[in-house]
């Protein structure tokens, strides 16, 4: 189990975007449920509690991915590791960074659009 969480485990090659996918499902599903139950009036524009909640959900993911990326990058600079493990660590870090950027980009429309129209 410990090996599984190591920054050099191949799991890191998918973890970053796996988290992003889960978050994506969460905001898409969350939006559907919010609109089914407590749709804010369309006159309120984009500055609604729904947008705020969904937008806020991006922040922990962003921070966590950032930490994972940093961890991978550090592990990759450890020259005692085998080249294969360093490759995985650095590539994994890259995936985490991509996850971070993807999170920000997908959250962008929350600043522009009202939630349930």
């Amino acid at each position: 189990m410990r090996a599984l969480l190591s920054p050099c485990h191949p799991l890191q090659l998918v973890l970053g975007l796996l988290l992003w996918s889960l978050w994506f499902v969460l905001i898409y599903g969350g939006l559907s449920v919010l609109c089914a139950f407590a749709a804010p009036p369309a006159t309120q524009g984009q500055w609604t509690l729904a947008n705020l909640l969904l937008g806020a959900s991006a922040l922990p993911l962003f921070a966590f991915s950032g930490w994972l990326a940093l961890r991978g990058w550090r592990a990759a600079s450890n020259i005692e590791q085998s080249s294969a493990r360093r490759f995985v660590a650095l590539t994994g870090a890259g995936i985490h960074v991509i996850g971070m950027l993807a999170t920000l980009f997908v959250a962008l429309p929350l600043l522009i659009l009202p939630p349930c129209v």
Partner: peptide
């Protein structure tokens, strides 16, 4: 809803 579409548009 257009916001939901926008998530997919961005992706």
């Amino acid at each position: 809803p257009q916001l939901a579409q926008a998530f997919f548009s961005a992706a």
